[in-house]
Design a protein around this nucleic acid. Structure first.
Lengths: 114, 114
DNA sequence: CATCCTGCGCAACCGATGGTTGCGTATGTG
DNA sequence: CACATACGCAACCATCGGTTGCGCAGGATG
């Protein structure tokens, strides 16, 4: 089984800037688009686009408040994303271990032949 | 701490096709570029480019053999990537739990006020 | 040896995307 | 009212994943 993960979710958290946006939201609670851009090396516009993407996959939720727009993490969806991350991680972990075992076996066999 | 992960490594495994290439290499041992493209919905050229990227970050190693070029996984580097994956996963896991705790606390406090 | 086939690399091109700048607009604040 | 600020929209650019179309080198086969 090829670990049928949700490519949309994955690619949402695949972008480094987006990961940092999520980090900031996780660390400092909800924030406006411009506030977040202050702490990032990119423009407000870029952050806004990223928030749009994150909103579209449901990782984040927008709340208009006067002339500002607050964003907060959707914990449930975020938990799902983290779960997929961990799933891939452990799958690859397992395969790595198996490969190492096989490599060992081959090595031993060839040493016996010598 | 913003989980200073290696963006190059991450974005290398961030691409879905690249993840599948790695999956194939993990499952079937080393393979040529064209053989891999047979099992993927993309062209040999695309696979070749991906293998180039993976090679550049050291996740994969090329071995010319006659008119073919075999690619095999670099287990050490791959292990590092997996480790980073898991690290981010558990970091986010921890933050999620903390946020949920805080949310609970706030909820309780507001209920006391009512 | 001549020929053919196959696996690869290089180059041009295309669409999506992360990023920028610039502008218009709406909401607060002196 | 006038000014500042937070936002959205649009145009534009570079990069990247992907394709097609070559040309070339390395083996098989007559």
């Amino acid at each position: 089984m090829t670990a049928a993960i949700d490519d949309d979710l994955w690619s949402a958290i695949g972008d480094p800037t987006r990961r940092r946006v999520l980090d900031l939201l996780l660390a400092g609670g909800p924030g406006t688009a411009t506030a977040l851009s202050d702490e990032l090396p990119v423009t407000r516009q870029a952050v806004a686009k990223h928030l749009g993407v994150l909103d579209r996959v449901g990782l984040v939720h927008a709340t208009p408040a006067g002339r500002e727009t607050h964003y907060r993490i959707d914990e449930a969806q975020f938990a799902r994303a983290v779960a997929q991350l961990n799933a891939v991680g452990s799958t690859w972990d397992a395969r790595l271990r198996r490969i190492k075992q096989i490599a060992e076996a081959i090595k031993n066999a060839s040493e016996e032949k010598n």
